[in-house]
Design a protein around this nucleic acid. Structure first.
Lengths: 222, 222
DNA sequence: CCTTTCAGTGAACATGCGTACACTGAAACT
DNA sequence: AGTTTCAGTGTACGCATGTTCACTGAAAGG
């Protein structure tokens, strides 16, 4: 809690402890605003979030908000950025060592559930604002998902699907990402005791999709 | 436009034409409110919809709103009901004569695209409020989807998957419904020229899921 | 040491909100 | 014909909103 890290171009006179530079203080307030927004949007969505509410929650006067963000929309964009950083961290975890197909599936689902429950606020924010009230925030979320989908497609290319076209990989990737989003939303609204069932379902579904994809080319238009 | 249909327990004195009974007038206003709400939520979501906005759009004084709905939430529930009626009509279309598997897939996707583009407002409303601001409306949407998912599961039981358990059917159904929702959202934000691509993708994905399901049991845990 | 920077203050504003209340006038009922 | 019902009116209220503006005081910098 007692961060004494220094920042700036040159170190000042020599401060013993517990002091806080101006930029540190500002950063702390900024974080407090982001956290307050994340907490408050849980009930109402970003659309129902007011500048004054956030300010009161943080403990600053409404006008001070403008020192950090131009508008609620800009705050929203910052939260999109932050929330997807969370998501990317998750993917990094999944990528570490993935031997057999069944293990890929298992670990992917396990990691998904773990991250969603740990980062409820971020995932909830994404889920809500994906179809939320602000056009600019909504668009930002969609761009991130599109980016994400492309990444998964390149990952999938490493599976034994050599002859697949880039288009087909994108289609499968789109399907999987969609299912992942749906599962995340289910995790968010589930009670802890339901998680095992959701995990089982997600595993099965992911396996169905992959098995389906592997058997699909050979079948063609049945 | 000139509806002269009579309603009530006994027919009145004999009205020549263009007259409107009290209940007819009320119903017309109610519809106007629902339509206005559907139009206005397109930008902001139900959370950003105010009673006064709706009233102004309809051309009544704000307090008159209460003659029709207790609150915006109640309005929301009525819209959920109406929107899902739209969805059910779609399913009825799909069920009519479905010979081969490939044809089921083709016609399902075609009907989905057709209905979503025709009923943009309703599908858009569902997509938004699925994760929207009002807890009671959100819950109503989710119940409808759950109901829907169960129905699809019984439909799937008629496919050659005799040995499948009810649980497995539900899992597949959940996956398909999820993909259908995702596709609907894509249709809603797509431009007309992109529809062909979306249709192709949805067909492929649905086929992947079904093929995957059919091949899944035989494989087990690979 | 003196000046500049700037996060946060506090009062003021116009506007939009939900809702209470007493009302009107035409349709519906007896 | 006389009475009741009720969709819609109009006013008024207290409250929350975003944004403006001039300000303060401590940290940063010359």
């Amino acid at each position: 809690m007692g961060t004494t890290r220094r920042v700036g171009t040159l170190s000042p006179v020599s401060i013993s402890e517990a002091a806080e530079s101006r930029s540190e203080k500002k950063e702390r307030t900024r974080r407090a605003i982001l956290d307050a927004a994340l907490r408050l949007t849980e009930d109402t969505g970003l659309a129902g979030l007011s500048l004054r509410q956030v300010a009161k929650e943080v403990g600053i006067v409404p006008t001070a908000f403008y020192r950090h963000f131009d508008s609620i929309d800009q705050l929203g964009l910052a939260l999109v950025e932050e929330s997807f950083a969370s998501l990317r961290a998750m993917i990094r975890d999944v990528r570490q060592g993935t031997p057999s197909l069944a293990q890929i599936v298992d670990s992917s689902v396990a990691v998904l559930i773990e991250h969603v429950t740990e980062q409820r606020a971020h995932f909830g924010f994404i889920a809500r604002e994906k179809s939320g009230g602000s056009a600019v925030v909504r668009e930002a979320v969609r761009r991130q998902f599109a980016f994400f989908e492309r990444e998964l497609a390149t990952d999938l290319a490493r599976l034994p699907m050599d002859h697949w076209s880039a288009d087909d990989l994108r289609i499968l990737s789109n399907l999987i990402v969609g299912a992942m989003i749906t599962t995340s939303e289910e995790i968010l609204r589930a009670e802890p005791r339901e998680l095992a069932e959701i995990q089982h379902r997600a595993r099965t579904q992911l396996l169905m999709m992959i098995v389906g994809a592997l058997n699909w080319k050979s079948r063609g238009s049945d």
